[in-house]
Amino acid sequence: MNEIDLRRFDLNLLVVFDVLMVERSVTRAAERLGRTQSAISHSLSRLRSQFGDPLLVKGGVRMQPTAFALDLIEQARPMLSGIQRVLSPTQVFDPAHSQRVFRLAVPDFALALFAELLARVRKEAPLVSVEWTTPRAPTLLDVAEGQVDLAILPSELQWPQSVAGEAIGALGWRCFGRRDHPAFSEWGPANWARWPHLAVRIGDNVRSPVNVAAAAAGLTRTIAGWVPHFPAIAPILARSDLLATLPLAAMADVVDAYDLASTEVPFAIAPLPHAMVWCSGRSRDPGMIWLRDRLRPIARRTFAV
């Protein structure tokens, strides 16, 4: 890719690129932006030249993005939203008429939380949009830079000085397996350690709260498999002899649906405290205050031990 000179880069090209990634059509993008097809094609050509990548290629009815384009739009959209917020009035927020887009980073098991929040937002602010992303390693930096409006993260993480937050509760732990799993007939530490486990790959699993607590109890967990996200756990447990030690909130909505059993962890493991965090420089933003007030009670119910 050619080195980009920001002094000469036209940010309007990213606006065109954003619309092209949604529409996947030069014609539809031109209609949406109120410009000619020739102008949109010229913008796409400039973007291709600037980034040294075709970005969008012909592929049937709709143009298909390259891998680079998918990565680029993931990085560009938060920046465009941030620029829009900076250039928009910050002291006025009218839920009934606002078209603001809020970006949340919330664990991927929080389906009920997001559904309830979205229903309330739709009722009070029908033109507001909420984008759900899952937390990742640099999420706190994204919050500090305003690329993520609100995040729900473990409280033990070290926050940058530019991040503010409040406690919302903690996650209690349970053990899960298929309902007729033989381990549950004589449940205890020995059976917990005897049977292989399924785990979610989040950071360094060796230092996970489960492993730390098990080691303190003189136990070792054998992990037979890892999955990338919580929703994959239930269907695998239902079809195997694997166990999983997880936050109760991660499985509350799927235990009955997959005919799973849930029981207490057979050793001491402390609840995992969580916090709702945001950029401290935007603490007085009326829109952010409005969103925090709506997320807070829902989050506290979800993260109640």
Results as ranks from 00 to 15, higher is better:
Asn211Ala: 12
Ser88Thr: 06
Ser129Pro: 05
Met79Ser: 05
Ala112Trp: 08
Arg179Gln: 14
Gln147Asn: 14
Asn205Lys: 01
Asp180Gln: 11
Pro135Ile: 09
Gln161Tyr: 06
His97Glu: 15
Gln91Thr: 12
His197Lys: 11
Asn191Lys: 11
Asp180Thr: 10
Ala183Cys: 01
Ala137Arg: 07
Arg77Val: 11
Trp132Thr: 10
Ala183Thr: 09
Gly82Tyr: 05
Ile83Asn: 01
Ser185Asp: 15
Ala125Gln: 05
Ala110Gln: 05
Gln75Leu: 15
Ala137Glu: 12
Gly188Asp: 07
Cys175Phe: 03
Arg174Phe: 01
Arg122Pro: 07
Ala115Lys: 09
Phe109Asn: 07
Gln75Ser: 14
Gly188Ser: 09
Ile168Lys: 01
Arg207Tyr: 10
Pro189Leu: 12
Arg120Leu: 13
Gly82Ser: 04
Thr133Lys: 15
Leu117Lys: 02
Ile83Cys: 09
Ala115Ser: 09
Ala69Lys: 08
Val92Gly: 03
Phe114His: 14
Ala183Ile: 01
Thr90Phe: 04
Glu156Asp: 15
Asp94Val: 13
Val92Cys: 01
Val163Ala: 08
Phe176Lys: 03
Ala137Tyr: 10
Leu113Ser: 04
Val101Lys: 13
Gly165Tyr: 06
Ser88Trp: 01
Ser88Val: 07
His181Leu: 06
Ile73Gly: 00
Asp71Tyr: 14
Ile202Thr: 06
Gln84Lys: 11
Pro138Thr: 03
Ile152Cys: 04
Arg77Trp: 02
Ala110Cys: 12
Leu87Phe: 09
Ser185Asn: 13
Ile152Val: 15
Val200Ala: 07
Thr90Glu: 13
Glu186Lys: 10
Gly146Arg: 00
Asp180Lys: 09
Arg77Ala: 04
Leu141Trp: 11
Val143Cys: 06
Val106Ile: 15
Ser155Tyr: 05
Gln161Asn: 10
Gln161Cys: 05
Ala96Leu: 04
His197Gln: 08
Ala193Asn: 05
His97Ile: 02
Glu166Gln: 11
Gly177Arg: 01
Ala112Tyr: 03
Gly169Asn: 08
Thr139Lys: 07
Asn211Gly: 14
Leu171Asn: 12
Ser185Met: 14
Gln147Leu: 15
His197Glu: 00
Arg201Ala: 14
Arg85Ile: 06
Val210Trp: 10
Val200Thr: 04
Ser81Pro: 02
Pro160Ser: 08
Pro135Cys: 03
Pro135Trp: 12
Ser98Cys: 11
Thr139Asn: 05
Ala96Cys: 10
Glu145Trp: 00
Ala115Gly: 04
Phe102Lys: 02
Pro160Asp: 06
Leu157Asn: 00
Ala183His: 00
Glu186Met: 10
His197Trp: 05
Thr133Cys: 13
Ala69Gln: 02
Pro107Cys: 02
Lys123Val: 01
Arg174Tyr: 09
Arg207Ala: 15
Glu116Asp: 14
Ser129Met: 13
Phe176Ala: 03
Pro182Arg: 06
Leu127Glu: 15
Val106Gln: 06
Val86Lys: 04
Glu74Arg: 14
Pro189Tyr: 15
Leu141Gly: 07
Ser81Asn: 11
Glu166Cys: 08
Asp108Gln: 11
Glu166Asn: 07
Arg207His: 13
Ser88Asn: 08
Phe114Ser: 05
Trp187Pro: 05
Ala164Glu: 02
